[in-house]
Write a protein that binds this DNA or RNA. Sequence first.
DNA 1: TTCGCAATTTTGTTCTGGACAAACATCCTG
DNA 2: CAGGATGTTTGTCCAGAACAAAATTGCGAA
Lengths: 302, 302
Amino acid sequence: MNTPSFNIAAVERDTGLSKDVLRVWERRYGFPLPGRDDHGERVYPAEQVERLRLVKRLMDSGHRPGKLLATPTEELNVLAQRRPQPPRAASDADAAAELDGLVALIKQHDGAAYQQAMQQRLVRQGLERFVQDTVAPLTRHVGAAWEEGSIEVFEEHLFTELTKRLLRQAIASLPDGKRCPRIVLTSVPDEAHVLGLLMAEALFALEGAECVPLGAQMPLLEIARAAAAHRADIVALSFSLAFPKRQIPALLQQLRAVLPTAVALWAGGGGVKRLPEVAGVELLASLEHSLAALEAWRRKQA
Amino acid sequence: MNTPSFNIAAVERDTGLSKDVLRVWERRYGFPLPGRDDHGERVYPAEQVERLRLVKRLMDSGHRPGKLLATPTEELNVLAQRRPQPPRAASDADAAAELDGLVALIKQHDGAAYQQAMQQRLVRQGLERFVQDTVAPLTRHVGAAWEEGSIEVFEEHLFTELTKRLLRQAIASLPDGKRCPRIVLTSVPDEAHVLGLLMAEALFALEGAECVPLGAQMPLLEIARAAAAHRADIVALSFSLAFPKRQIPALLQQLRAVLPTAVALWAGGGGVKRLPEVAGVELLASLEHSLAALEAWRRKQA
DNA sequence: TTCGCAATTTTGTTCTGGACAAACATCCTG
DNA sequence: CAGGATGTTTGTCCAGAACAAAATTGCGAA
């Protein structure tokens, strides 16, 4: 197990920090400070890539790069392990313990046990409560664990993958028939998270809507085409917390401009909380809001 | 429905062409030629973005940018519609017709009918033959249709999403028990295609392997951690045809360097065909090769 | 002719260093 | 203590040059 080195493109891929950012940080803060190869191009040792990942994670939980990059690695590790968890209300303690139990299965890398436990909950609670009371809080739970560094990236991936399978399976087993309205579900390029979309799909499908799941990462102009081809009543997008907030309003405006006025545009997920209003776009702060929006849509049609 | 305009970041997102490429093309070939906003920054009209998408597609099917960008849009459209399909052998005609029928359902945007038809084939053929004789050729079929422009992006997305659901459902219904070897399945960052991975997972699971599906886009160093945590015998990666070929060898070398020697590294998918050998990495040109590799692994252990 | 190798063109990526606006923090005043 | 003005931080964009890897062409030998 050597310590390989990465060129700037590889670092961009692995950390999500753009080449421009990597270069400007080097200029301003003196980190990262890669070596150079024969052609004068940057060569990053694995160790610096690791530190960049740590910095990125701390930035996602609210820290500012200027401070972080001036801090020695040891202190960063301390910061990373601090848990700023607000104490839960006593009534939630039971629920929280159950969620912890599920997360523990993932962290033991026992996928089979996790799937079995979740399947049990699904049967016990029914799909609607399963989504609202298990999957949604669990996702938040895992998100929090990620921020405080108590879960590895690959563990989070395993969690996501297995949970996606459960939801898709549940959705597939719903009866189908004549359904309304038609909802196209997707996300914009660079937004790869799909769990929120699947949760919404499950709830919408339960309420009798016809869902067209297009997966993630649709170019804007293609979303408009898809809406036309599927005669959609609603286009529903999902933005995760990780998506750069500053880009969202412009994106929604652009999409709104290419969609026919008759098609409603909904945007949900953690990324749209505390976002300024965008004309002609419904911002859904939670799954409950999504269901309310569906009901409101139906009332307006009738 | 206005014609919105895009800044350079939005164009990068929507076309997959990097900012650097967009700028250098402008300088060299005079296209794209965006306007400028108040601050002197590029503003691309939707029409130019569309043309860029067309150019990108033609490049993916072997054309060269220098020629394409010197060609007027009308001629490009002609090029795009040309179908360089080699005529099929007569014996394959039936099979091809069946596949065409399945694709036709997608192009009618009738997801339900597609799912039903595929479900039938799954039951009729059994999972192994379903993967090898239906899903794999169908995927190639859709890929070809994409190259010749006879399928829309959102149709391809719908196909992928629905097919993923079928495969995952089928995999979930397999019995579990004590299994060997343990195979971690994933893809590298920037490689979002998962269908190939799912096909491999289905076949491996049928052969009694223990599969750990981590989804797509794992940073290299995380793949190594995951392999350790799951005590993996094999790490299997998938590269689609769309993945930039030139990057693959370096990626595999880097990953090979961080993985323990005892862990085998397999790479499959359309992207690894006609690729130079990489030391310590098994390149799997097809699903059949994957099964052969599994058998060979078992022989070596025994 | 056809094959293989060398020369040349094409093309994507990287470099430097400057600029600026939007987001964020801080300070001052009512 | 609220709220607006001022200052700082930070990501993105720009220009133009340089260069290596890939693809194509040209050339000479089998």
